[in-house]
Simulated scan of single mutants.
Amino acid sequence: MKEILEKISSYNIFNYLLPGAVFGFWATKEYDLTIPTDILTNAFVYYFLGMIISRIGSLIIAPILKKMKITKFENYKDFVKASKKDEKIDLLSEVNNMYRTIIALIVTIGFLKFYNWLESKLIWLSNWNITIGLVFLLVLFVLSYKKQTKFITKRIKANLDE
């Protein structure tokens, strides 16, 4: 257990575990759910929930904010070069991602509230909850994989071009 805790970075804590715990706490109150009480199971459940919320932030929230011109990104090659010169950029990027994940957390809670309202109007929808959830997760993680692969490729090219 100690070895696992030592490998968890601040990024994982603030972008996965914390939002997952907040979401899990909200869900237990809102839906009268029971999450197992042992700390290890809680950590894994909250981490996974946080991972989902973080991916929603990366794949849905970030592009929307970019399209609305609320955020603007620099060229990735410039980011890689600047990060090597100024180590604080990585920390600032981590904090930036945490804010995006918190926005995604709030949006996700709002969406689930809307879905519950919709489900009360369309009774048949409740029969499809698991299927809808699994399809959503499949699409979310396929797109995450695609984005991460592209990110790795861009980073390799940025480092080779130096």
Score class of each variant (00 low, 15 high):
Lys67Asp: 13
Asn96Cys: 03
Ile106Val: 15
Ile130Thr: 12
Tyr99Arg: 04
Ala43Cys: 10
Pro36His: 04
Thr153Asp: 09
Lys146Leu: 13
Ser83Arg: 08
Ile52Val: 15
Leu17Thr: 08
Leu17His: 12
Glu30Asp: 00
Ile64Leu: 15
Trp117Gly: 01
Leu137Cys: 13
Ala104Ile: 04
Lys67Pro: 01
Thr149Lys: 13
Ile130Lys: 07
Arg155Lys: 12
Phe79Gln: 08
Asn97Ser: 13
Leu59Gln: 12
Asn42Gln: 14
Leu40Ser: 10
Thr41His: 01
Ile52Asn: 04
Ile123Glu: 11
Leu118Ala: 14
Ile132Phe: 09
Trp26Val: 14
Val107Asp: 01
Gly24Thr: 04
Tyr46Met: 09
Lys29Trp: 07
Ile152Ser: 06
Val95Gly: 03
Phe141Cys: 03
Lys2Val: 13
Glu119Asn: 12
Met98Tyr: 08
Ser54Leu: 09
Pro19Lys: 11
Lys84Thr: 02
Met1Arg: 07
Thr131Ala: 10
Gly57Ile: 06
Ala62Lys: 11
Pro36Gln: 05
Val22Gly: 00
Gln148Leu: 12
Glu119Gln: 11
Glu6Met: 11
Thr149Met: 08
Lys29Ser: 10
Ser120Ala: 11
Leu143Arg: 03
Lys29Ile: 11
Ile53Thr: 03
Leu160Cys: 01
Ser93Asp: 11
Lys69Pro: 09
Leu118Ser: 09
Leu33Glu: 08
Leu59Phe: 06
Tyr115Leu: 14
Thr41Asn: 02
Ile102Lys: 00
Gly20Phe: 05
Ala158Lys: 01
Ile152Val: 13
Phe111Pro: 01
Met51Glu: 10
Thr34Ile: 11
Ile56Gln: 01
Lys157Phe: 09
Arg55Pro: 00
Trp124Lys: 05
Gly24Asp: 00
Leu49Gln: 07
Val95Glu: 06
Tyr115Met: 12
Leu40Pro: 03
Ser54Gln: 10
Asn129Gly: 01
Ile8Pro: 06
Asn15Arg: 04
Leu33Ala: 12
Asn97Ile: 05
Glu3Cys: 03
Leu49Val: 04
Leu112Phe: 14
Asn75Gln: 14
Asp86Arg: 11
Glu74Met: 15
Trp124Thr: 03
Leu5His: 01
Asp38Cys: 05
Thr108Met: 08
Leu134Ala: 12
Lys85Asn: 10
Trp124His: 07
Phe141Met: 07
Ala62Phe: 06
Asn129Val: 07
Phe136Tyr: 10
Thr149Asn: 08
Glu162Lys: 11
Glu162Arg: 09
Ala158Trp: 06
Ala27Tyr: 08
Tyr76Trp: 15
Thr149Ile: 08
Ala43Thr: 13
Lys77Phe: 09
Ile60Pro: 08
Asn96Gly: 15
Ile8Arg: 07
Thr71Pro: 02
Glu6Gly: 02
Lys29Leu: 14
Leu17Arg: 05
Asn75Arg: 15
Ile39Glu: 00
